[in-house]
Design a protein around this nucleic acid. Structure first.
Lengths: 250, 250
DNA sequence: CGTAGAATTGAGACTCGTCAAGAAGCGTGG
DNA sequence: CCACGCTTCTTGACGAGTCTCAATTCTACG
């Protein structure tokens, strides 16, 4: 519900994504596409929708398009040799998904909620980038951002206590969702406990237990299995930094 | 020693980096800079050297330049609030380091060995990118590559057994170093046990113990604390996949 | 050659993974 | 609308693996 009270109704103005400046001093919150750039992209993009649980693309498929999320949440995962899934990230409105390597997707994406996206054909991308020099700066900025996301993910995993990982995870989701207009302190968890566990590197049972512990400490509260509210930030921070990750002095 | 028998002597032909194609079917091993592009970069780049242990740049500094490693190895880390270090990656010849956000570096870099790099002033980058449309494709490719590296890092951390993490770590280093002309099966570890532990998410003691165990199994051997050889790849693989990471079905 | 830091090794505590059972939620179909 | 069944989630008990603390050995550098 509260996921996109952002002023961005579906028939809206075309693809949209932004990211902090890379080299410049960043004279503002973020670089954004110009109106012309958006219009150009809108000309080649189409709107597609997926229901909860549907697959958007799969690992190894030919990368026919790049997607720009308008509404909803998506999980990106990679299939391990033993058929299990490793969650590499969760994606939100304005995110760009479907980056490829050598023309093939390198992971799979599935809708966690109903999702609306702009689908931008891959064939059109490269040539358009040449014509619109500003665009690739956007893309570079976006990639840098994704890179930091991945490093943040690694940071979760480097924590050893389950409660610390989940605390950071909740903080990340809250920041994301606050940016989408959700009420502060409220976090929506559309993904399963298994997905959370796979992302932060613990078992689904440990997810349950640690959520319960955090709630017991008064740091968070559940109105529903999928809706958490952050009650006491100090206690949450405390849980995150208690007996931190191993080593690291040198 | 064996780190750069690659045909790339220091007075060489200027900055050099390559990465797999992103969207195209990738008609080859990698996109590389054209001779003109390298010449152009050489015109604005200078060569700098650092001794083992010296700091190349630090988190929060103004991002004055981008660096391209010619020779040597570098560690990138982030300082945690409690003054400890979290290793975010190890970098090798041809890697690009010093990406920034809003004009500030987002992590610190330190030489693990004697290092030679091209220093490319940040001020010159943006304008040059506009003049040379091919360059940003390079950069985009590079970023995608780094992104996958970070995801690979996350993958280490998602493994729970220490031996598995170290096995993957050794494989990663071997691949890197083989590309630099090192003899196959030989891995050089210029970083401390603490650095390794911080990177793969275990304590330095666990690094010691697990290396010993891997050696005991006959998977690897040490000629020296810093020089490992991979003796039995099958056994190494075995150690990596024994009782994999937790959960992940859904 | 001596000292400071790194690496190794050992012993004990604690967390989390695994296995297993029960509860709760969701969708389907009557 | 309710009943049914399946999946997901929660909770418990046990065991394995790693962290911590601490002592010892090794290495590198002055």
């Amino acid at each position: 519900m509260a996921l996109n009270s952002l002023d961005r109704s579906l028939p809206g103005g075309g693809p949209y994504f932004s990211a902090p400046a890379v080299w410049g001093p960043g004279g503002g919150p973020g670089q954004v596409l110009t109106a012309e750039e958006r219009a150009m992209l809108a000309g080649i993009a189409t709107i597609v929708r997926f229901r909860k649980g549907e697959s958007i693309y799969e690992d190894g498929d030919d990368a026919s398009a790049l997607f720009n999320i308008v509404t909803g949440m998506v999980k990106a995962y990679r299939l391990l040799p033993d058929q299990r899934k490793h969650i590499v990230g969760f994606l939100f409105p304005n995110d760009l998904i479907g980056l490829a390597e050598n023309g093939k997707y390198v992971n799979s994406a599935e809708a966690l909620t109903a999702v609306t996206l702009y689908k931008i054909p891959a064939a059109a991308i490269e040539s358009r980038l040449r014509l619109h020099p500003g665009l690739d700066f956007q893309l570079i900025g976006k990639l840098c951002h994704d890179l930091r996301d991945a490093q943040g993910h690694a940071f979760f995993l480097s924590k050893h206590r389950a409660a610390a990982k989940l605390g950071l995870f909740l903080q990340m989701l809250e920041i994301q969702q606050a940016g989408q207009g959700a009420s502060a302190g409220e976090v929506f968890l559309p993904m399963s406990r298994s997905d959370v566990g796979s992302y932060v590197g613990i078992s689904s049972e440990a997810v349950s237990r640690s959520f319960r512990d955090l709630a017991g400490r008064g740091a968070i509260g559940f109105s529903d299995r999928r809706h958490v509210q952050i009650i006491d930030r100090a206690r949450l921070e405390e849980a995150i930094s208690e007996s931190d990750s191993p080593v690291a002095n040198t």
